[in-house]
Computed example of a mutant assay.
Amino acid sequence: MPEMPGISPDVLRLARWVREAGFTVYLPSLFGVDGAYPTTADGEKVMRRACVSAEFRAFAGGQTSPIASWLRALARLALAESGGPGVGAIGLCFTGNFALTMAVDPAVTAPVVNHPALPIDNPAGLEIGPDDATRLRERVARDGLKVLAYRFDNDRWCTAQRFAAYQSLLGDAFDGRVLPGEAANPSPPPFFRDLVGPHSVVTAHLVDEEGHPTVRARDEILVFLADRLQRDER
């Protein structure tokens, strides 16, 4: 899924890496201009529109965004078209938590929650309704669902409090990994430089150098997907 403010070249790069690892990739366009690095002003406009859209629950927490139903249907379609033991879901920033709410559906067996920014008004909150939270705990107990997550330690949009809330919800099924903020790309696109700060571990703030902490995070995600989605081939 895209991160705010859209399917940037960095998001497309991540999608290509996943494809090159042997997976079929579905990349839904949810907001913004596909393929563009927006200016800071344009990115801010996209974010404002998304925050008031009926499809998203950007504030307060304790609710599941309506878009989750459509994304779950997309996961079922992907499974029907591509086969395999399940579907992975990679959420980023504004869509970070959507990977978790998609995992309410049994089709999703490998959710990756990257620096989830919602709910914006509650750093310790989760963007998930109580019924979905119960169903997720049931999946953990019944299916052995595991959730992989990443953030920078100085991320102001995805705080330690939020990871603690995920841990409280999911227990040992939540694997939250924290990178040092100084590892973030110091020269990200303008929107991230001017408004966001260290945040996007495997996209805008990734440093594409062998052995770099952000590249190791990317590789860990690919291993997680392979383990959960290619078990019948190993």
Rank of each mutant, 00 (worst) to 15 (best):
M1N: 09
M1T: 14
M1V: 09
P2C: 14
P5Q: 05
P5N: 08
G6N: 08
G6E: 08
S8C: 11
D10I: 07
W17G: 10
E20W: 10
A21W: 13
V25P: 10
Y26V: 15
P28I: 04
G32L: 02
G32S: 02
V33W: 15
G35F: 08
Y37M: 11
A41T: 15
A41W: 15
D42Y: 10
G43H: 11
G43I: 09
K45D: 14
V46Q: 13
A58I: 08
S65L: 12
W70N: 15
R72A: 04
A75N: 12
A78V: 09
G83M: 09
G86C: 06
G91I: 06
F94P: 05
A99F: 09
T101G: 05
A103D: 08
D105I: 05
P106V: 13
A107T: 12
V113W: 01
N114F: 11
N114L: 15
I120E: 02
A124V: 04
G125K: 02
L126G: 05
L126M: 06
T134S: 14
R137Q: 12
E138I: 00
E138C: 07
K146G: 12
V147C: 08
Y150Q: 09
R151D: 01
R151L: 07
F152G: 02
D153Q: 09
N154E: 07
N154D: 15
A160L: 02
Q161D: 12
A164H: 03
S168H: 10
L170I: 05
L170F: 07
L170T: 00
G176K: 02
R177P: 07
P180M: 02
G181P: 06
G181D: 06
L195K: 13
L195T: 13
V196M: 06
V196L: 03
V202T: 12
V202A: 09
T203Y: 01
L206F: 05
T214G: 09
A217G: 04
D219A: 10
E220F: 07
F224V: 00
L225S: 01
D227I: 11
R228E: 12
R228G: 02
L229W: 07
L229T: 06
Q230L: 14
R231T: 11
D232A: 12
